[in-house]
Design a protein around this nucleic acid. Structure first.
Lengths: 134, 134
DNA sequence: GTTGACTCCGTACTTGAGTACGGTGTTTAG
DNA sequence: CTAAACACCGTACTCAAGTACGGAGTCAAC
């Protein structure tokens, strides 16, 4: 058998995911994270499932997605309308592709800047501005 | 000679950059955009320089940078301490590289999802969650 | 030469994403 | 068995990034 997945209280879950307890509650209020049924004394318990989701949310956020976007992203799977899900996913793919391309330009601009500095090339026009004015 | 660059009022500048007039003022207050001297009747005039900067800000923002980050990014050029500028730029480069890598994973996850949908593969675990739990 | 569109500036409101607070009930370690 | 630490819930506060508003002055077209 697999090791029994540990069960978390909201506090241990928060620590495991490196977020604030209040953040979890906030996500639950927003419907972004499920709120398990409370058992016994009214405390709720969480599993790896919630932890994974919480971590995914944080990652996606760092990638520049809003909670609203993340919600649709994470719900793509549950989407029963396969056609709709596919369209949405495809849209996101091209959006992300564009974002990647721009980040790459920016990256190169910065790398160039690093180079300029190394060579003491003072008078060059701002490569960052240039990269961002594509 | 080059065509004389047109000069903008705050309103035309705003329209050209597709932002709100108030946003421009806000950026000026934050010191993110220069506030040209007012001439004549107290109106300020803007040039392509400001337009370019404004557009760059918007782009960088869409790439997930905060105004504060953008401020340091755009000021890297003016930075006279070459060593400091280089370090900062290098840090940003690795940060951006990481971001690109994650976006790529996400992109692939989504593409995979599109594929699953096409093949009617319903029971697979969420590839998006998987991508984001790296 | 006045009217409508626009500028300036200060202050106030809004939205997204949390954070903090306070009262009450629960669990657990000593 | 009790004190400290924690959970629950509702409400309120904060911070970033705008947006809106209102009064006063300016410009441009008719």
């Amino acid at each position: 058998m697999a090791a029994p997945s540990p069960s978390y209280t909201i506090g241990t879950l928060a620590r495991a995911a490196q977020v604030n307890v209040e953040t979890i509650r906030y996500y639950q209020r927003r419907g972004l994270l499920p709120q398990p049924e409370a058992v016994g004394g009214g405390y709720r318990t969480y599993s790896e499932t919630e932890l994974a989701r919480l971590r995914a949310i944080k990652r996606a956020q760092h990638l520049g997605f809003s909670l609203e976007e993340i919600e649709t992203l994470l719900s793509l799977n549950e989407e029963t309308d396969r056609v709709k899900a596919r369209t949405l996913a495809q849209d996101k793919v091209s959006l992300i592709d564009a974002r990647i391309a721009q980040l790459q330009e920016m990256r190169n601009a910065l790398a160039e800047l690093v180079d300029c500095c190394r060579h003491g090339d003072t008078a060059a026009p701002c490569p960052i501005l240039r990269a961002l004015s594509a």
